[in-house]
Design a protein around this nucleic acid. Structure first.
Lengths: 337, 337
DNA sequence: TTGAATGGTGTAAGCGCTTTCATTAGTTGC
DNA sequence: GCAACTAATGAAAGCGCTTACACCATTCAA
């Protein structure tokens, strides 16, 4: 494996000049630069990350913490982040902390703190004050996507307001019996979004003078199959049925639509369904939803981070609200007579 | 940020002893070990990855290369790999090379070769001989999941044989008009699995003396919505319809089921559908499938890799066939009379 | 013309660890 | 009792880069 020393010898330059030529920092004459490049190419030289990180303090590596990659939203954010980082020549270290608290502590402490990353992106993660403090103390930029992160920069959508918008859409169509499909407690732990959307739902209902029935606020695990199961209970019982469902994610909305179909309910004639996210599958089901472009959010997070890293203007905590699109399709209509 | 030197001072030991105590390598008296640990804990010392990597040559970091994280199969592998690595105290660097060839070259060359990772796991990626050569030349273990990787260890399922099994299941039920939903050319590039499954389909058809109609072998992008669109064409035309569909993935099988439902075809009475993968959603649709547990495959890949890394028995190329389960549910039955 | 920038280069001092080697103390075998 | 080990430790030499500093050669403003 060729080292920078070999390149320097071959190019007839000092190690320092080669380093400057290849990294673009400092002054190097065009001729030297060319010779350094040529020598590096001939030898197949690629600088060692650990050596250059150790010497410079920059790792060109970003940590991405997600609760899972198996939900559309998270996978999309990961792809957005990944593509943006690749373009910028950064690596991505993925921390998938599905399994809860124990693992999570060790990740934050052992991994993120080990100076292995230049910055951290945390997706929909409710960190404790302590944890945020640790992150900030270490002088690494931290940006949160889709969740509050006091003290750090965030990119988020107005979950509360958008939930209200969704519910108001149903109310304006004439619905009053509106159920809500939200996340369950397992998710709540790391992940405050369902709670916020639910609050928006309740607020919109109350504002319209509509009752929030406990039995119409049902929880699932954010999967289609989980939502399907609870939607069957919701729609199949003998109790009074809702005429509309606001699901906290498109994947759950699809579960609700499938459950409705199973009972012979037509969507939207017998039941309106509205989701949230912008899942590609929504098109197939004609799902009315709020598109939040998580891929774009991931890309934006990277852009903000790298700007701060390169520009040195870190510490500038910014809370960016990411634009969303309200997509009206065929799954919402006036309630049955 | 406390360094090992601070720990050494506090513990009244030399740097060398602290390093040995904390890493577990070499001989250290129980007393010294305890003092080192205590001092490290008090100072919140965490060793620098780059420094220890540079000095030791070990990075405790594994590279994972996937074509996407937005398909269930890949996301599941990622979770399996991630969990296993976290348990082992390794980091995971994710290379999501969705965008094709250009990006891919730069990843392989600039990233993987930069000694940043101890080993690489490539999922369903058809690397060229050159690329594999580069990887092996660098003396880093390489394991492939779900695809051939000549010269490297692999974990795979018998895609060809399992496709035959799936088709034979349909044939034994009495089907002769069997369509196949496979991946399209965009995917084929990186990713040979669809081709292999298709070959298995054709082989089973031929073995049973059944014709393989070109118009019944349709391609989609491996998504549910993509499969739905082509399945509509397949089922909605005026041409003779198949009585069964073998989809190369569960996500596509679900698309086929939804398309069938749209036309009022019942599954399985009017159309049998069989998938492949073991997606959780399959249960909801009563989908007959072949469960290949990608999460487990990811975990196994890590185990094999770490064994080789720790044991030093690298170079041992092993081709492991991962066990699968044939799951018969409600989506397959005898063809309509 | 002179002092101050600025450009281009090399020397060498680290970055924060791991590990070899040397040294001393403690064990064991016969 | 002495050679031959093993255990425990520290000093110091790197690992392969980056960069502060020093130096000389230009260029430029005044």
């Amino acid at each position: 494996m060729a080292g920078i020393k070999d390149v320097a010898e071959r190019a007839g330059l000092s190690i320092a000049t080669v380093s400057r030529a290849l990294s673009g920092r400092g002054h190097v004459s065009p001729g030297s630069r060319e010779r350094a490049r040529a020598a590096a190419a001939e030898l197949g030289f690629v600088p060692s990350y650990q050596a250059s990180s150790l010497a410079s303090g920059r790792t060109r590596n970003i940590g991405l913490v997600v609760p899972t990659v198996r939900r559309w939203y998270f996978a999309s954010v990961v792809e957005g982040v990944s593509a943006a980082l690749l373009d910028a020549g950064y690596d991505l270290t993925l921390y998938n902390i599905t399994e809860g608290a124990v693992r999570r502590r060790s990740i934050l402490q052992d991994f993120l703190l080990r100076k292995r990353v230049d910055a951290v992106i945390a997706v929909a993660l409710a960190l404790t004050e302590d944890e945020i403090g640790q992150m900030l103390a270490i002088q690494r930029p931290l940006v949160g996507i889709g969740g509050p992160l006091p003290g750090a920069s965030t990119i988020r959508i107005d979950d509360h307001g958008l939930a209200e918008t969704a519910v108001n859409h149903l109310i304006r169509l004439g619905h009053s019996r509106i159920a809500h499909l939200t996340g369950d407690s397992v998710y709540e732990q790391d992940f405050k979004i369902p709670r916020t959307r639910r609050a928006g739902y309740e607020q919109a209902m109350k504002a319209a003078g509509l009752p929030v029935r406990r039995s119409w606020v049902v929880t699932a695990d954010f999967t289609t199959e989980g939502a399907y199961a609870v939607a069957r209970d919701l729609l199949g019982g003998t109790a009074e049925r809702p005429t509309a469902v606001f699901a906290a994610s498109d994947e759950m909305a699809v579960g609700a639509i499938l459950a409705a179909r199973d009972f012979g309910f037509r969507v939207p004639e017998d039941l309106s369904v509205i989701g949230m996210d912008g899942h590609e599958l929504g098109e197939l089901f004609g799902l009315t939803t709020i598109d939040q472009d998580p891929r774009g959010q991931g890309a934006l997070a990277v852009r903000l981070l790298l700007e701060g890293l390169d520009g040195g203007t870190d510490g500038a905590v910014a809370n960016t609200e990411y634009p969303t699109r309200f997509v009206v399709r065929r799954s919402t209509a006036v309630p049955p007579a």
